[in-house]
């Protein structure tokens, strides 16, 4: 087996790269040449077009219409104007932002800390904790929400039971405007970010040991090694996880519908729950589509900001 020095590219591959950099003018000819690759991609592409691309485009078109079962009407920007004039949308946006701003840093940071603690363990322990922390990711959020609903139960819930040990009065966690959203935030924070832990562990494994050896020789403590080697080198993973969890937090829905229904009042109303209600309860699909497009733009803006702030400096 030929050893390839790091950073070097085999001659043949180098030529291929040049071809990629300067695409052949005849795209179809190239596609024909690589038809087997396209054939492998085709099933996924068809599914993507059918179930993602077309619905997304249709939602955008729908956002300029007043949806009616038999013949929708074009209404221009009316739906978008309604979105920004709606108090319910602004409340939902505020709640969603608070949820995101608190849960995303906590989830990513806790994933980093947990992964760092697991990484130093032996193989068997690592496998055990890796599986244990990933378990909530493969568990239905409906089930998790039901369990947490019980834990927050005023009379029989775990939290009020524990508070009782210290003589603290019971809290109506999900029944008071002041505590309901925070109860959902606490729940989100305490559910291990399984994907994050697994990805951090994989990324940590790819950091060269020589860097740590050099740091140790310079007398750096374990914490300093973590702070100045591990964290900076995990930056691309962190960026990806922050983006992933931000998108997930903006789309929080299952917990809301299972635990509070957006109440009490509108204390836990979030954007996706509002979109769901607008579409499937009020049947205002045009308005719901406009709300979705606005949510898409908000997520896009946040993603661009995060990408610029956290991107890996070459």
């Amino acid at each position: 087996m030929t050893q390839i020095p790091m950073g070097a590219v085999p001659k043949k591959d180098n030529e291929k790269l040049k071809v990629l950099k300067k695409p052949n003018k005849n795209v179809f000819l190239q596609m024909k040449k690589n038809y087997s690759a396209y054939l492998f991609l085709l099933p996924k592409l068809i599914l993507f077009v059918l179930f993602v691309a077309i619905p997304v485009i249709w939602a955008f078109v729908l956002s300029f219409q007043e949806y009616k079962i038999f013949g929708s009407e074009f209404v221009g920007l009316d739906n978008y104007i309604k979105v920004f004039q709606s108090e319910a949308f602004l409340v939902a946006l505020k709640n969603t932002l608070l949820f995101t701003v608190v849960t995303v840093p906590f989830s990513v940071l806790s994933a980093l800390v947990i992964a760092s603690m697991i990484f130093v363990l032996g193989k068997v322990s690592q496998s055990f904790f890796r599986s244990a922390f990933y378990l909530p990711t493969v568990t239905s959020m409906v089930i998790i929400a039901m369990v947490w609903r019980w834990m927050y139960n005023y009379e029989f819930g775990l939290f009020n039971y524990i508070l009782g040990w210290f003589g603290i009065e019971q809290i109506n966690w999900l029944g008071q405007s002041s505590s309901a959203l925070w109860a959902l935030i606490i729940m989100q924070c305490l559910i291990p970010f399984g994907v994050g832990i697994i990805m951090y562990l994989a990324s940590m494994g790819s950091i060269s040991h020589s860097l740590y050896e050099a740091a140790r020789m310079d007398g750096a403590s374990s914490f300093k090694q973590w702070l100045h080697i591990t964290i900076p080198l995990l930056k691309p993973t962190t960026l990806y996880l922050v983006l992933l969890s931000t998108i997930g937090s903006f789309q929080v829905f299952t917990q809301i519908i299972m635990m509070t229904g957006g109440g009490p009042g509108n204390a836990t109303e979030t954007l996706v729950h509002l979109i769901y209600k607008t579409g499937f309860r009020d049947f205002e699909f045009g308005l719901a589509a406009a709300q979705s497009v606005v949510l898409f733009v908000i997520i896009l803006i946040f993603s661009i900001i995060q990408f610029r702030v956290l991107r890996h400096d070459e």
């Binding site: 139960n153 005023y154 009379e155 019971q170 109506n172 999900l174 029944g175 229904g261």
Partner: peptide, 24 residues
């Protein structure tokens, strides 16, 4: 009335009246 009066727990409310283990 309990603290949960006016809450949103339909099943829990019914259980508090009908479930033999509760009847609260």
């Amino acid at each position: 009335a309990p603290e949960t009066l006016g809450g949103n727990d339909v099943g829990g409310t019914f259980q508090a009246w009908a479930n033999e283990e509760q009847r609260t």
